[in-house]
C-alpha cells in the first residue's frame, strides 16, 4: 500500500520529467503530425479479478519515437502495452480504469471500433506467430480482413510491407512457400510486415526478440530504428541493452507502478529514483 502511494507521487514527478511540458490539450484528431504525443495514458488502473495489476499510471508516448518499457517480470509493462490496443478485452475478468488516448481519441470511450483501433495499432508478439499460410497470404491477411480487394493492390502492399520489414529480398522468390519454412528471425520480421501492412500509427512490440538469437535480434533492432521514422513504436523488453540501443524514451515499471520515465540516456545514466538505479545497474530484475 505504501509503495502504491509513493508510486503515485513518483509517477507524477516522472511525468513531469519525461515529457516536454506539453499538457494533454491535444485536439481530438487522427492526423499524425498534429500531435506531439501519440499515446496519452491518464490514471490507468488494470485489475485481474480482485488483483490490481497496474496502479494509477500516467504516461505520454511521443510521436514517431521509440519508447521502451522495462522492468522485472510481472511489473505490468505488458499489461499496459495491451491496453493500447485493447487486447485485454479478450482476457476474462480483466477490468481497465482510467483513460488511454491515441492521437487524442479516448480508445475506451463508448462506440470505439476496436477492430479499427487494432488495425491502427499493430502488435508484434513475443513468439513469432505467422499463420500456417504462405508468406504472401500472411501479409495479405490483415489487408483482406480490412476490406482491401484486388490482386494487384494487395500484391503491391505486400511487397511494400515486406520491403519495409527488410524481408523482401530474402523471400521474393518464394512468396507462396509456407511461412513456417522461414527461420525464427525471418518469421518475426514477417509478423512485423504483417502488422505494418495496414499502415498503423502505432506499433506495439511485446518482447519481440526474446525468442530470437543475437543476430536475428540485431536485425530486428535496426528495423525498429528504421521504422520509427514513420511509426510510433512502443517496445516492451527484458533486455536493458536493447532499450539503450533502440529507444528514445524509456519507462521503468515496478510492481504495477510506473517508477520513472524519461529520455533513455537519462534513465540509464542519471535516474532520479533509486529503484531505477538499482534495476538498471543490475541489482535486481
Amino acid at each position: 500500500m505504501i509503495l502504491a502511494d509513493t508510486s503515485t507521487d513518483i509517477s507524477q514527478k516522472a511525468h513531469g520529467a519525461g515529457t516536454h511540458g506539453l499538457s494533454g490539450t491535444v485536439p481530438v484528431t487522427t492526423s499524425a503530425t498534429a500531435a506531439r504525443q501519440a499515446v496519452e495514458v491518464q490514471n490507468l488502473e488494470v485489475f485481474y479479478g480482485q488483483h490490481r495489476a497496474v496502479h494509477n499510471v500516467n504516461l505520454k508516448i511521443n510521436h514517431r519515437e521509440v519508447t521502451a518499457f522495462i522492468g522485472p517480470s510481472g511489473c505490468g509493462k505488458s499489461t499496459i502495452l495491451r491496453c493500447f490496443n485493447r487486447m485485454n478485452d479478450l482476457v476474462k475478468h480483466c477490468r481497465v480504469q482510467g483513460t488511454v488516448k491515441i492521437h487524442g481519441a479516448d480508445i475506451y470511450a463508448r462506440g470505439t471500433d476496436v477492430m479499427e483501433l487494432r488495425k491502427r495499432t499493430g502488435m508484434v508478439f513475443q513468439k513469432p506467430n505467422p499463420f500456417p499460410k504462405s508468406i504472401h497470404e500472411n501479409v495479405a491477411y490483415p489487408l483482406r480482413i480490412h476490406g482491401v480487394r484486388g490482386k494487384a493492390v494487395i500484391a503491391e502492399k505486400v511487397e511494400r510491407s515486406l520491403r519495409l520489414a527488410g524481408l523482401w529480398d530474402e523471400v521474393k522468390d518464394r512468396l507462396h512457400a509456407s511461412a513456417l519454412s522461414l527461420s525464427g528471425g525471418q518469421q518475426q520480421r514477417l509478423c512485423i510486415a504483417r502488422a505494418i501492412a495496414v499502415d498503423p500509427d502505432v506499433l506495439l512490440m511485446d518482447e519481440p526478440c526474446s525468442a530470437l538469437d543475437p543476430i536475428a535480434t540485431k536485425t530486428i533492432e535496426s528495423l525498429i530504428n528504421e521504422l520509427s521514422k514513420t511509426i510510433t513504436i512502443v517496445v516492451v523488453t527484458h533486455n536493458m541493452h536493447q532499450a539503450v540501443r533502440v529507444a528514445h524514451q524509456t519507462a521503468f515499471f515496478y510492481m504495477g507502478n510506473l517508477v520513472e520515465t524519461g529520455p533513455t540516456d537519462k534513465i540509464f545514466h542519471n535516474p532520479v529514483q533509486h529503484q531505477t538505479l538499482a534495476y538498471v545497474t543490475g541489482q535486481f530484475g
Binding site: 499463420f131 491477411y141 490483415p142 480482413i145
Partner: peptide, 26 residues
C-alpha cells in the same frame, strides 16, 4: 488452435468471426 495465432489475428484487428475462420482453416 494456438493461443498465439488467436492473439495474432485479434491483434491485426480481426473480428471474432474472422478469427474463428482462421481457427477452422488451421
Amino acid at each position: 488452435f494456438p493461443e498465439e495465432l488467436e492473439q495474432g489475428a485479434y491483434g491485426l484487428g480481426a473480428t471474432w468471426w474472422q478469427t474463428t475462420r482462421l481457427a477452422l482453416t488451421y
